[in-house]
């Protein structure tokens, strides 16, 4: 018998097994006197807070800003945001860990979200994810390869979002150039960018269907 993948074993959320450290002080709203906040970040957050009737609405914008500065929502990043927003870091942590785009651990410079939802996987997204994963393996410095839920671009399935830029339809052959463009800061696969696509572009999916996900079993 083969083991069933266990939620909680193969998919532990970091922290499930974490006890608290009695050496630490309780995490209250950081004291501006002791908590250093980069001026740039402070400005962004304060500007964001000013846009809303209730400053807490700025939480997600603030976390986005902190993440782009620190690379992920690190404890330090959360403390800095908490200090400016006058909330507890725990409040921010509970928000940050709720959303997929806010990273809970250090990640590579370039985010590569590969859509593996229905429409994309019908067109071989799982093979694509595997390929990108392989190609990027060992370069965690540069790449944060993640499978993602429907990114809202099923018309260019299978697709990926590279640092926010949608590209597709992708085939396994595109992978090397995709990573290369990203690594070297060039526009990623310019002719496959969603931005250039017409509504229901007849060219878009003229390519033959890729070998089907079922056969390569990468989804099992």
């Amino acid at each position: 018998m083969t083991p069933v993948p266990r939620l909680g074993d193969d998919a532990r959320a970091s922290g499930w097994d974490r006890a608290t450290d009695p050496e630490k002080d309780p995490a209250l709203i950081p004291d501006p006197a002791t908590c250093e906040v980069p001026a740039q970040l402070r400005e962004t957050i304060e500007a964001a807070m000013a846009r809303y009737p209730d400053r807490r609405s700025a939480t997600i914008p603030a976390l986005h800003a902190a993440q782009s500065l620190h690379g992920w929502c690190s404890p330090q990043a959360l403390e800095q945001v908490a200090c400016v927003m006058r909330v507890t870091p725990a409040y921010l942590d509970s928000v940050a860990s709720f959303y997929d785009m806010l990273e809970q651990r250090p990640v590579g410079r370039h985010s590569v979200y590969v859509c593996t939802n229905i429409s994309c996987s019908l067109r071989g997204a799982d093979a694509l994810l595997a390929a990108i994963g392989e190609a990027a393996a060992g370069d965690e410095e540069n790449f944060n390869v993640r499978s993602f839920e429907c990114l809202g671009a099923c018309d260019i399935a299978p697709m990926a979002s590279v640092d926010g830029v949608y590209v597709g339809p992708l085939s396994v052959e595109d992978v090397p150039q995709l990573l290369d463009d990203a690594r070297s800061g060039r526009p990623v696969l310019p002719d496959k960018q969603l931005a250039t696509r017409l509504v229901a572009d007849p060219r878009a999916n003229s390519q033959e269907f890729p070998a089907h996900a079922v056969e390569d079993g990468s989804s099992r």
Binding site: A13, G15, R18, P26, V87, A90, Y91
Partner: peptide, 26 residues
């Protein structure tokens, strides 16, 4: 209103915790 104890993560992953391993002292 100390806002130290929160839920982290989402869905079946959700769990009760504090920030970054700080004890819940209030």
């Amino acid at each position: 209103e100390d806002y130290q104890l929160v839920l982290l993560e989402r869905g079946a992953h959700s769990f009760v915790s504090t920030f970054d391993g700080h004890p819940y002292v209030a």
